[in-house]
Design a protein around this nucleic acid. Sequence first.
DNA 1: GTCTATAGAGTGATAGAC
DNA 2: GTCTATCACTCTATAGAC
Lengths: 211, 211
Amino acid sequence: MAGPITSPRGPYAKTRGRVEAVRRIAFELVVEAGYRSVTIAEVARRGDLTEAQVLYHFPSREHLLVGALEHADSRSRANQQVGVADVRTAVAAAVDADRSDPEVLRLFAAMSAAATDPTHPAHEWGTRRTRAIVARYADLLTDLQAQGWADPGVDPHRFARRFMALWDGLQTQWLLDPTFDLGREVADGLAVLAGRSDVDGRHSGGPAQDA
Amino acid sequence: MAGPITSPRGPYAKTRGRVEAVRRIAFELVVEAGYRSVTIAEVARRGDLTEAQVLYHFPSREHLLVGALEHADSRSRANQQVGVADVRTAVAAAVDADRSDPEVLRLFAAMSAAATDPTHPAHEWGTRRTRAIVARYADLLTDLQAQGWADPGVDPHRFARRFMALWDGLQTQWLLDPTFDLGREVADGLAVLAGRSDVDGRHSGGPAQDA
DNA sequence: GTCTATAGAGTGATAGAC
DNA sequence: GTCTATCACTCTATAGAC
């Protein structure tokens, strides 16, 4: 796993504590007021540090945002042990958990796009995240196939890519205009991509509730 | 259609020409060096304007980027009349066209995420874009159903949401790590979402060429 | 390794001239 | 309506002290 990207610069250090504290402050700022409100000056104020101190540990504002992201990752990893008992309800639950902090989702969306540039500080974070998620979803499909829920003809890796893309894309649409049931759309999308022709995307419960 | 968001402030004006020129300059900067290189100073230099002049027509850097986006939109609208003869090759062709300017795609991805915030200058652009695309894809599915290519049980509006989400998501993944065939993935994803169980996502050509 | 001091570039707000 | 002038703030790079 190789540790977080914005790690302490040296092996000694007051740094460990500082860095952790700053990450938390940045994260809280995101939750409270959105990532656009995260500024070096504001983080310094809240942490009772000078701007130069913050800047020493996080060489740029973008690094600060990556720090907030990592803090969010470590937090949600705790809640992440969803049983695979019923995947669709598990997915819906995951969506619900996310939905309570839309500003964090916004940060994820913005960083995922920015991370696309190899020179961006979030690049490594984005690469790791994508690899990890694709691997997890591929495993998920394999399980679902073993349980007879998913079509055994679907390739797990390609499924994983698609499901991740679909989830991220739906999330962005939902952040833009939260008038549809994200949990339902993600869950139904999962079923369709898993090759279940019985469940939705089709006949089932009728058209979604938005226009 | 109501005209572009970054429209001239008044009805008279040198403005029309200026604004158009600046939009073009910003767009070209994106193509050449990525959206991060778009700065008020650089645009002013290239347009032989003062920074204050640029700032008058585009009250912030973000507005400038929206301008670049609109320029891109108007450009691609020309090439956009793809026949629906063979959808999958049409999709692949669209992907190819896009792929020649990855920096523009990056701008789209970044702005789509940022537009999510109702106070962001790109919000209206994002809302319009999403509505337009969803409407277009819904029509597309209806056509494909009429032709017997797509499963008639699939709801066009929900399909449209999904396909847009999938395409956007795959594009971001591809920008991050362009080691898979984006055109193929989008085309196959379309088939799966349209309810064609014969085509891919399954048995067909074997696993994709990347790990 | 940690931090101070400083300076330069980029962003954006305002008051007022034309 | 269009633009000049000016200023305050944020970000970031650097040199060097502790």
